[in-house]
């Protein structure tokens, strides 16, 4: 689960969190007591219809502003690490 969530955990941390999350899930399991067969789910609690705006350009960030917080940029792009280890290709 930690890997799926892209969290790097050490083995001893995995045990620590597994125990804590087990306790929380035990509490959450009380939801099974409630019969919800005929109940619709709620995703958004205040009813609002789709709100559309005119398809016109609005003021937006310049590329420099959008890139200003990035750890690494080149030629107006974000730089990411290679998907494979260097040398693997």
């Amino acid at each position: 689960m930690a890997l799926l969530a892209r969290l790097g955990l050490e083995p001893e941390e995995e045990e620590f969190y597994a125990a804590q999350l087990g306790g929380i899930l035990a509490h959450i399991d009380r939801l099974r007591e409630v019969d919800t067969e005929a109940i619709p789910p709620t995703a958004q609690v205040v009813p609002l219809a789709n709100r559309l705006r005119q398809d016109e350009p609005l003021p937006r960030l310049s590329p420099e502003e959008a890139l200003a917080n990035a750890p690494e940029t080149r030629d107006g792009y974000f730089v990411v690490k290679a998907i494979q280890d260097a040398g693997d290709a």
């Binding site: 969530a5 892209r6 969290l7 790097g8 999350l21 260097a86």
Partner: peptide
């Protein structure tokens, strides 16, 4: 980090505290 996946893992390991990790794991589950 040698690659993108390791970059995610190491950065989020260094950057997130215990409560955020708990909730992200719980929510992912």
């Amino acid at each position: 980090a040698p690659n993108l996946l390791e970059s995610y893992l190491r950065t989020r390991r260094a950057g997130f505290g215990p409560e955020v990790r708990r909730r992200v794991m719980l929510g992912t589950y």
